[in-house]
């Protein structure tokens, strides 16, 4: 398997209860996984643990046969080769689109860097936006730049934290389709966190339902949530509303 996570646990320093409690799962190459759960269920913490932004109490994580962390190993986030799209995108406000994307491309010739910027901008359909600054872009455009920036260094795994929560309902549906197309075209393995059941259904190959820091269920969207026709056709259907379905 491409990604193997075993017995992952984590407690915040100001808390006594475990935010993530002994979680294990595997992911195949090219697979898109959704972590679905209520707010406070620990889903974003799992993402931060995979990224290396938090250090777990225990557990192990192997990526493409490489030991990323266990009792003795802890590879720093910058050395993991994992990309991440943040909830509020975290585009560097003092850099334009091109500089934002170039920022993660250090070990390349100038020509290759330029080529890669053009490639990813074409992928997210934002050619011609190179010189714009983040504040000159719409929410949807900012999200696509954040995705382009994360994809550009060709990470082995890409993490997305609530990628649609800052978008309007209409835009969410459109961007969701775009995102699946982009991820599949780039053959990227991805894990994304959401509280929106429609996002999980539309994007994921498999869903991990999280409850109180533990895995509640794992399965394909149709097995876990039923077919798309059973879901209300709205942009924002949140986990809390549909949990009893």
């Amino acid at each position: 398997m491409f990604i193997d996570i075993q017995d992952l646990s984590f407690t915040y320093s100001n808390s006594l209860t475990k935010a993530v409690n002994c979680i294990s799962f595997t992911i195949e190459k090219g697979e898109v996984i959704s972590i679905l759960g209520r707010s406070g269920s620990g889903k974003s913490t799992i993402l931060r643990l995979i990224a290396g932004l938090e250090m777990p109490d225990e557990g192990s994580f192997t990526l493409n046969g490489k030991k990323i962390m266990d009792d003795r190993t802890f590879i720093q986030p910058e050395k993991r080769g994992i990309g991440m799209v943040f909830q509020d995108y975290a585009l560097f406000p003092h850099m334009n689109v091109e500089e934002n994307i170039l920022f993660g491309l250090s070990k390349m010739s100038r020509k290759d860097k330029k080529r890669r910027v053009n490639e990813v901008l074409e992928l997210v359909e934002l050619e011609g936006f190179e010189k714009r600054y983040p504040h000159q872009l719409s929410g949807g455009q900012q999200q696509r730049v954040a995705l382009a920036r994360a994809i550009a260094p060709e990470p082995e795994l890409i993490l997305l934290d609530e990628p649609f929560s800052n978008l309007d309902a209409d835009l969410q549906v459109k961007i969701r389709e775009d995102l699946r197309r982009i991820l599949k075209k780039a053959n990227t393995t991805a894990v994304f966190v959401t509280h929106n059941i429609n996002d999980a259904h539309a994007l994921a190959d498999r869903i991990l339902k999280i409850k109180d820091g533990k895995i509640d269920k794992i399965g394909r969207p149709c097995d876990l949530l039923g077919s798309t026709s059973e879901l209300p056709n709205t942009g924002e259907v949140i986990f809390e509303e549909l949990l009893p379905v």
């Binding site: 986030p77 080769g81 250090s106």
Partner: peptide, 23 residues
């Protein structure tokens, strides 16, 4: 978030400090 984003792009703590935090 900006610091985390920079590190997720493979940039070291020190370089992140000078290229992201300081500006």
């Amino acid at each position: 978030d900006f610091r985390d984003a920079s590190r997720m792009l493979g940039v070291s703590r020190l370089r992140t400090f000078f290229k992201i935090d300081v500006p």
